[in-house]
Simulated assay, not measured.
Amino acid sequence: MYSKNTLNEDITMALAHEVKSPLSLIKANIELLELENVLDNHKKNVKIIKNEINKISEIVSDFMLFCNQNYKKDLTKINLLDLVKDYIEKFNVYMNITFSLNCFEDEKDITILSEYYKISVILSNIYKNCVESISDKQGFIQTNIYIKNNYIIIDVIDNGKGLDEEISKKIYEPFFTNKSSGSGLGIPICINAMKSINGKFEIFNNKKYGCTTRIKFKK
């Protein structure tokens, strides 16, 4: 028997999937026409269309992730240090941002049994938000891994613009965003994912600059 919430999530997932498929097909056909030089006289328009398709596709993906948090995935052994290193490497392509990593524990003590997919989504959202907060200025993103009060803690610290008072009140709300594009689901996705694996998520302003995003895994 379906609960009302489960039924609504399944309907939303199905609808999002049905929207995402034609979007992918539209984008593929535009790229094919580009290769055949059919659209050479409309390059500006094509760029706008592709950008908007990418925005819609990203929003649909966020909806699918948001609705997918309650589904249990297979548990796997995860070395948090190795996973953080992977994401730092993926995002370390910005010339204006310096990345640093400090692990204050032995690697065997920060290995957990959890859902790899969910933690990957969380880290991806965190580093993406940090990069967007720094924008084009000279910045840094520092990651600290340590154990405190029986939690493995990952702090991701940036020197971006931080959160003003109004945004900090609403940042955990689904669909709230101060960006020109996006679904406003990035942080709620992280919160739901951490809750589903008995962890905690928080984001707060630093005293002097930027934000710290903290995720806590129960040992």
Rank of each mutant, 00 (worst) to 15 (best):
Y151N: 10
G162L: 08
T143Y: 08
G162W: 01
I134V: 15
T143G: 08
K148W: 07
Q138T: 15
D136C: 09
K161A: 07
N149R: 05
S133A: 11
N149D: 15
K148C: 13
I141W: 05
D155K: 00
D155A: 04
E165Y: 11
F140A: 03
N144G: 01
I157E: 00
K161G: 02
K148P: 07
Q138S: 14
I152D: 04
D136A: 08
N159A: 05
N144H: 11
G139P: 04
D155Q: 07
K137N: 15
N149T: 04
I141K: 08
S133N: 08
D155I: 02
I152H: 13
I153A: 04
S133R: 04
I152M: 12
T143F: 11
E165F: 12
G139T: 06
I134C: 10
G160R: 01
V156T: 10
I157C: 01
K161C: 10
K148D: 10
K161H: 03
G160N: 01
K161D: 02
Y151S: 01
Q138C: 13
N150A: 11
N144P: 02
D164H: 05
N149G: 08
N144I: 05
G139C: 09
Y151T: 08
S135K: 14
K148Y: 12
G139F: 05
I153F: 12
S135Q: 12
Y151M: 06
G162M: 10
Q142V: 06
T143Q: 09
Y151F: 15
N149K: 12
F140V: 03
D158F: 01
S135P: 04
N150P: 04
Y146A: 13
K148M: 14
E165L: 12
D158E: 00
D155V: 10
S135R: 13
N159L: 06
I152N: 05
K137V: 15
I157D: 00
K137C: 15
D164Y: 01
